[in-house]
């Protein structure tokens, strides 16, 4: 009941936000919602099924590049490109998951394998002429007064509602998954894979499912990224730093929880933005400061709140 009320209040606040706050704050909220969304997607793989991916930027990049390249090179509309992006990401995820789980790779080796595939792909895209290689891929920005949702071209407010819908959808999907049969299988695998296997759960199949679902969701974020920012560089989108940014929200918020990724993303992005603003108000520009702040947040949370920020709050609110 309390959770329902909280959720409704949050929903109303977020839907109303663009009417109330400034354009600048809307852009900050877009970034926060973006990270809430990808965090939720990553959380399915790690928080639910216990498979640590440190290379999730791979799926963002694949999604972004597939839809953007189809759009730029052949004029394929973004929503069709989205389907292609999801298929490409799922195919990659299935291949990686298949290889890793078939060969019994887990723990640190699995995490390193995800990094290796992401890095491999990054360098590959750096030399992939059709998508602009390291010089980048640019989407034409047409000046429009209105918003065209079908062409994914429009004002920041339109993008705000798109990413809000995505984040809400991911939240709902995660919530449904958590109480479904597959969710219980995942949690059994997360807690003790051998025991899960002994109980007759096809661990190979369900781990693979977690990777593929998570990758599919993440690739959608990539398409959003491409059409919102209009430029793509392999160096940026596939870099390991991006993968780390994706996982900060859920870890700081609370791994495996529904609200954790959302809370983590908002707290982190809003604080980081406040920090950036504060520093630039002092007339300074310090590259790396935001990341140091992220690192310190992560360090403090991992050391003193190993389950994240959300669980203690949830207890306090008696949710």
């Amino acid at each position: 009941m309390r959770a329902r009320v909280l959720l409704s209040l949050l929903a109303v606040a977020l839907v109303a936000a663009p009417f109330v706050v400034s354009g600048y704050l809307v852009s900050v909220l877009i970034v926060a919602l973006y990270f809430a969304y990808v965090g939720q997607a990553w959380n399915i793989m790690m928080g639910f099924a216990g498979q640590l991916s440190l290379g999730h930027a791979l799926y963002v990049g694949l999604g972004a590049y597939t839809a953007a390249a189809l759009f730029v090179q052949s004029g394929v509309p973004p929503w069709l490109g989205l389907i292609a992006a999801i298929i490409v990401a799922m195919a990659f995820a299935a291949a990686i998951g298949f290889l890793a789980f078939r060969f019994g790779i887990s723990g640190v080796y699995f995490a390193l394998l995800t990094i290796a595939f992401a890095e491999f792909t990054r360098i590959g895209f750096d030399h992939f002429g059709w998508v602009g290689a390291s010089a980048g891929l640019f989407l034409p920005v047409s000046q429009r007064s209105g918003s065209d949702l079908l062409a994914l071209r429009g004002t920041p407010t339109m993008f705000y509602y798109v990413i809000l819908a995505l984040a809400a959808g991911a939240f709902a999907l995660s919530r449904w998954l958590l109480t479904s049969r597959i969710g219980f299988y995942w949690m059994a695998i997360r807690e003790d894979q051998d025991a899960a296997q002994a109980l007759g759960i096809d661990t190979f199949r369900y781990k693979l499912a977690a990777v593929v679902v998570s990758a599919a969701m993440t690739s959608i974020a990539g398409v959003f990224f491409a059409f919102y920012y209009n430029n793509l560089f392999p160096e940026q989108i596939f870099s390991i730093g991006r993968s780390i940014e994706i996982i900060l929200g859920p870890i700081i918020g609370g791994l495996g929880t529904l609200f954790g990724p959302v809370l983590g993303a908002f707290v982190l992005q809003l604080l980081a933005e406040a920090l950036r603003e504060g520093v630039s108000a002092l007339g300074l520009e310090i590259p790396g400061l935001t990341q140091v702040f992220y690192g310190v947040c992560l360090l403090v949370v991992v050391m003193f709140l190993p389950n994240g920020v959300w669980p203690p709050i949830a207890r306090r609110l008696r949710l």
Binding site: M46, L52, G107, I244, P287, V292, G295, L298, L299, P306
Partner: peptide
């Protein structure tokens, strides 16, 4: 602690170190 918790700890140390270097020595 669980393995992933250790990873995160070291990842945090890494982020602080590399960006600390960036702040001190520039890009």
């Amino acid at each position: 602690r669980p393995e992933h918790s250790q990873f995160m700890l070291m990842v945090a140390v890494a982020i602080v170190l590399v960006n600390g270097l960036l702040m001190i020595f520039g890009p």
